[in-house]
């Protein structure tokens, strides 16, 4: 599904990703763990098409060159990024935003757009599963939401948009244990044989709830070790220094 070959990324002449390669097959859950500044967020930004990076190498998503696609086209193809710091968008109603987003993606895929009632039924169901306060959906997008609510809102968007590849950029940071469980349940509910996940995190904690198929250690822009879920436990014990 996703093939990253020898990806190099620089920002203002500083190398952030250095010959980074990764393969994700349909249905797989990959976790990338790494210390601060190792390039985790840069990776997720580049996958989503954020501008401002100087990149070389190759990223194929379902055999299409991602560099040829704009951010919104990547979303149409099924790539979703749950932001580390979801932005507050004043004046934009959350429900209206969600509907605009879902219908933009459905339209691009040639599917029928949902009308207001169909949409509300869908959003109600998803919000309920995530224990997301429905009243908040009538508020301005992320404005005045707590850190946990913002993260939950990302997972809500993910479950509504039903992407093929979900990238979770430190979604666990700032979550209390209950919220963490709700978020993990949301992700697990989406785990299907065709949906893949790339989970970026500092800590092993989230991986207690979302069992990854593969764990990779990212240090200085490079994967220094890959393994199964046990690697996360090892990291937690030994720290990143031993993987450099």
């Amino acid at each position: 599904m996703l093939k990253i070959n020898n990806l190099n990324a620089k920002i203002e002449k500083k190398t952030i990703l250095n010959n980074f390669s990764l393969n994700i097959n349909p249905g797989e859950v990959h976790a990338i763990m790494g210390p601060n500044g190792s390039g985790k967020s840069t990776l997720s930004n580049i996958l989503s098409g954020k501008k401002g990076y100087e990149v070389t190498g190759e990223i194929l998503f379902e055999n299409k060159n991602l560099f040829e696609l704009e951010t919104e086209e990547r979303a149409h193809k099924g790539i979703f990024l749950a932001f580390q710091y979801p932005l507050e968008i004043p004046g934009v109603n959350t429900n209206i935003f969600l509907k605009t987003s879902l219908n933009a993606i459905r339209r691009a895929k040639g599917e029928k757009e949902l009308d207001a009632i169909e949409f509300l039924n869908l959003v109600k169901e998803k919000a309920k599963n995530l224990k997301f306060d429905e009243e908040k959906l009538n508020r301005q997008l992320n404005v005045g939401f707590s850190g946990g609510e913002k993260k939950k809102n990302e997972i809500l968007q993910m479950s509504i948009l039903n992407p093929k590849l979900s990238i979770l950029d430190e979604t666990d940071s700032g979550l209390d244990i209950d919220a963490l469980r709700v978020v993990a349940d949301g992700v697990n509910a989406l785990r299907k044989k065709n949906n893949s996940f790339l989970i970026i995190t500092h800590y092993q904690r989230l991986l207690d709830y979302i069992k990854p198929d593969f764990v990779h250690v990212l240090i200085n822009g490079k994967i220094t070790k890959s393994g199964g879920p046990e690697l996360a436990l090892e990291l937690e014990k030994k720290g990143y220094e031993n993987f450099n």
Binding site: S48, G49, K50, K51, E70, T71, E72, R74, A75, H76, F80, L81, F83, P86, L87, I89, P90, G91, V92, F97, T100, S101, L102, A104, I105, A108, Q140, Q157, L161
Partner: peptide
Amino acid sequence: FYLMSRGLNYEQSKELLINGFLLD
């Protein structure tokens, strides 16, 4: 970028932000 990552194109994202700015 946040809005575009949800499938809206640049113009739509810009319009949504401007309208949001004017709403209050």
